Computed example of a mutant assay.
Amino acid sequence: MEATRLEPRTLVNGDMVAIVSPASWPEESVPAWIARQVESWGLHAVIAPHTLDRRGYLAGSDADRAADLNQAIRDPEIRAVIASVGGCGSFRLVPDVDVDALRADPKMLVGYSDITALHQVWNAAGVPTLHGAIAGAHGDHVRRLLMEDADTVVEADRGALSAELTTSGSVEGRLFGGNLEMLARSVGVVDFDVAGGILLLEINRAAGLGMVDRALTQLRYSGALDGVVGVALGSIDQFAGYEDRGWTIVDTLRDHFDALGVPVLGGLPLGHIEDLVTVPLGTAAVLDVDHGRLTVDSPSGD
């Protein structure tokens, strides 16, 4: 995996941030709440025209959602892009993202879950992203990532369900990944460049263990994970108490992780939890399994 080629600059007071809905529509109050949070940091927020549109479960048509996203990418005044919510629909925009404009003027994207599809586009373009959200107890860390050139240190909770999958060792590499299902769906659509990288996984219980198994099998058998050096595993607490013919989520994941044969650190507060920690993707990281810590370099440059 090559080092990140393009670094968005650190934001300063007065910079503009766009709020967009590339996937599902948010509740009406959400974009305004995000705007207030961003403006409390000294930034200016712009809510994209179609952020609150509704077309089934989508925030308006594909064309309108792509137009909002690309306008934010192309506007030199916009220095970062925040997704209002995940849900479903980001994957439909992958072919329409103006990657040339993104490379010409790198800017970070903030989001997680379904937004993983767009993280993959940014990753293929060599531009870092932020996997997470500004809500919750760690919301201010997004400000530090955007404005203070901050590093990120994530401590594992050894009592969490996913901590049962923790192994041993320590590895270094560029962090990439996100939602398991979206990563598997991206195979054959977005280029994977993961050799030497650390795989971040967040898994929500959208279905049973079979979906988890199929997604990991696709990633492994397609060669998408060839060269991965470690796994940083977020919360799987949604699966607590769930079994399928004698197996739990821990059994399913262990079967695949053993086949990868790399260090695994579970118990990380990442994914579909109330107080998730936001981490950069596409930057250098250290997965110190023995000490239960993931450290990620700043995503931006001056």
Rank of each mutant, 00 (worst) to 15 (best):
D100C: 00
A195P: 00
R214G: 10
G292T: 02
L276A: 15
L109P: 06
R55C: 13
V171T: 08
G173K: 08
Y221F: 12
G196T: 10
D255F: 08
R144I: 00
P106E: 06
R92D: 14
V127W: 00
Q71W: 03
T167V: 09
D288W: 02
V94A: 06
D297H: 01
E148T: 11
L219Q: 14
A206T: 09
A163Y: 15
A45K: 02
N204F: 06
V231S: 12
G208T: 07
W122H: 13
A133R: 15
V171P: 05
L225V: 14
D226A: 09
D255M: 11
S168E: 11
A284Y: 00
E28F: 01
L201C: 09
A206S: 11
A206H: 09
E181H: 15
P280A: 10
S24Y: 03
L260R: 03
V262Y: 03
D157S: 10
E202V: 02
I198A: 14
D149A: 12
D213I: 10
S21N: 05
D244G: 01
A285V: 05
M108N: 07
S162D: 12
V264R: 00
G89Y: 00
R54L: 02
A125P: 07
E164R: 15
F239K: 12
V127I: 06
R143P: 00
P106S: 12
M16L: 11
S113Q: 05
T10M: 05
D98Q: 06
N179W: 05
V189D: 00
E274Y: 04
G261Y: 00
E181L: 14
R220F: 00
R9S: 13
V262G: 10
A195N: 08
D275H: 14
P8R: 10
P31E: 07
A66D: 12
V250C: 13
M182P: 00
G89V: 04
G197K: 04
P26R: 09
T129I: 04
D302S: 14
V99L: 03
L180E: 01
G266R: 10
D68R: 05
S162N: 13
G241Y: 06
V189R: 11
A285H: 01
E243C: 09
I19D: 08
V189S: 03
D290Y: 02
V250N: 11
F192H: 15
V121E: 07
A72V: 11
T129Y: 05
V127Q: 05
V189G: 01
R214V: 05
R293M: 13
A163D: 14
D149P: 00
D105W: 02
L209P: 13
I34V: 13
L161T: 08
A184N: 10
P76R: 13
V46C: 12
A72W: 10
A259C: 06
T152F: 02
S298K: 11
R36A: 15
D251G: 13
F192V: 13
R185V: 06
V212A: 10
D251K: 12
R65A: 07
T278N: 13
D251Q: 13
G241L: 05
L294C: 04
S186A: 15
S40N: 13
P269I: 02
L276H: 07
A285T: 07
T295F: 00
